[in-house]
Design a protein around this nucleic acid. Structure first.
Length: 420
RNA sequence: GUGCCUAUAGCUCAAUAGGCGGAGCGCCUGACUGUGGCUCAGGAGGUUGUGGGUUCAAGCCCCACUAGGCACCCCA
């Protein structure tokens, strides 16, 4: 085959669309219900925005970005996540002067140049929601609520968030130091990979999968014990809200997230049928991000969920989306004169709002009826020499195998009466 | 980016020990000259992912590349 999909990209075929339409609609509906407004930033941003916003030590920035230099001038990158671009838009459009907080959501493609696997694509879609401009733990709750609401609406049960707090610039360094102090004497019992992590990014040792390291984690310092008063209070407040809302969560002391900008709240939720890529959604608070990007000090909290992973999980769990609307009426014709009448009748019915499919070519009536059936049309109109001569149409109800010949002007009324 | 596995018709898969590539579904046509679903019959559709190599002979063995899957890394 000469041309094939670019690695890690996928075609969304007609049979996939009911799932997409269903999930997308749920996202828009829910966002609206919570008072989120849509903001769509461009797919392309300056490379530097992500380097600063996401962090140059992160995997996303250090090895997963689609970056290029445009005509030898601008260093550009296909967005590897939503938040940095949304924050840029918030700052650039002066949205800090609008009523705070701003509740914004986005839906669109994200690009990461990773090795593809089940549930992992190089172009994938995310639904993203952010509450910008308030430190209130209620904002954290709403972000988790909208995620929870989305999944339960889509048919997921047994939803349990993994929750942790990663402190702020004041207490986070103290915790990292405590981790170093704990693991350094145990260095020779750590897996080689974790020795590297301890040096480069000690938090990462916490979510290791290395067998040798796992037993050492039991007595490792826990972030919750190192939170300062403000962070501890925020965390307690959020937990109280979650309890009141009946949203289930587990405190996961090993949950640390990959992006540099997280402060205080971090959470994830896991799905079924995703292979090793279990995360259905992830999010957290990022109180220092906007300032780091050149805006006024502004707190924020948000989450993102992967649409492909939702759909994969839905399929795994046997959740069926509603079928997409299809044309109700099929028009079959026999002979050139009849075909011209059919085209006119189709135009007229479509103008009135009826979905109509007209047979192409000049095939046998049998073949045309077969097409009508396979297209899922409930009703068929037949026009042949007799109907052209008499100004009539033969109308057939495919589901009930009943038909009648009527004046062409009565076709619309007959259709209305026979639609399922 | 690393390791392992895989690649045959549009789809799901067969092909004994290297020896003329098949089936089911789907598609087209007919049985039924103006009537769908069910049934029956016939037909189209392949450079066996791509490029090399070994051999009298390669879908099958060897190498590279491409793509997918699984596990890492990490994440949605």
């Amino acid at each position: 085959m000469k041309y094939q999909r670019v690695r890690g990209m996928q075609d969304l075929l007609p049979e996939d669309q009911p799932y997409w339409a269903h999930v997308e609609k749920a996202c828009h509906d829910l966002a609206g219900r919570y008072g989120f407004e849509r903001l769509e930033a461009p797919v392309l941003e300056s490379t530097d925005l992500f380097v600063r916003g996401v962090g140059d030590a992160t995997d996303i920035v250090s090895k997963e970005m689609y970056s290029f230099v445009d005509k030898g001038e601008d260093a550009l990158t296909l967005r590897p996540e939503f938040t940095a671009g949304v924050m840029r838009a918030y700052i650039e459009n002066g949205m800090g002067s609008r009523p705070q907080p701003q509740k914004l959501y986005s839906f669109g493609p994200i690009f990461r140049r990773e090795r593809p696997a089940k549930g992992r694509y190089r172009q994938f879609y995310q639904f993203n929601a952010e509450v910008i401009g308030t430190p209130d733990a209620l904002a954290d709750l709403e972000i988790m609520q909208i995620a929870h609401g989305l999944y339960s609406r889509l048919g997921f049960t047994n939803l349990v968030f993994q929750l942790n707090s990663t402190g702020d610039p004041e207490c986070k360094p103290r915790f990292i130091q405590a981790l170093r102090d704990y693991f350094t004497p145990l260095m020779d019992r750590l897996a080689p990979l974790d020795r590297e992590r301890l040096a480069k990014n000690p938090l990462r040792v916490l979510d290791t999968k290395e067998r040798e390291t796992l037993p050492l984690l039991a007595d490792a310092p826990r972030f919750v014990d190192y939170l300062n008063a403000a962070c501890a209070e925020h965390f307690a407040e959020l937990r109280a809200y979650l309890d009141d809302a009946g949203i289930r969560y587990e405190i996961n002391h090993r949950l640390v997230r990959g992006l540099d900008y997280y402060t205080k709240t971090v959470f994830e939720l896991w799905g079924e049928g995703l292979g090793a890529q279990g995360a259905l959604c992830g999010g957290g608070r990022y109180d220092g991000l906007i300032e780091a990007l050149g805006g006024a000090p502004t707190p924020g909290v948000g989450f993102a969920t992967g649409i492909e992973r939702i759909i994969m999980s839905m399929r795994e769990l046997g959740v069926q989306p509603a079928p997409l609307p299809r044309p109700d009426v099929f028009i079959a014709h026999l002979g050139p004169a009849a075909k011209r009448v059919a085209v006119q009748l189709a135009a007229q019915l479509r103008a009135e709002g009826t979905g109509v499919r007209v047979a192409f070519g000049a095939r046998s009536l049998k073949a045309q009826m077969k097409d009508a059936d396979r297209a899922g049309c409930a009703l068929a109109l037949l026009i042949g020499d007799d109907e052209v001569r008499d100004g009539t149409v033969t109308a057939r109800d495919l589901a009930h195998s009943e038909q009648a010949t009527l004046a062409r002007a009565d076709a619309a009324g007959w259709i209305r009466a026979h639609l399922p």
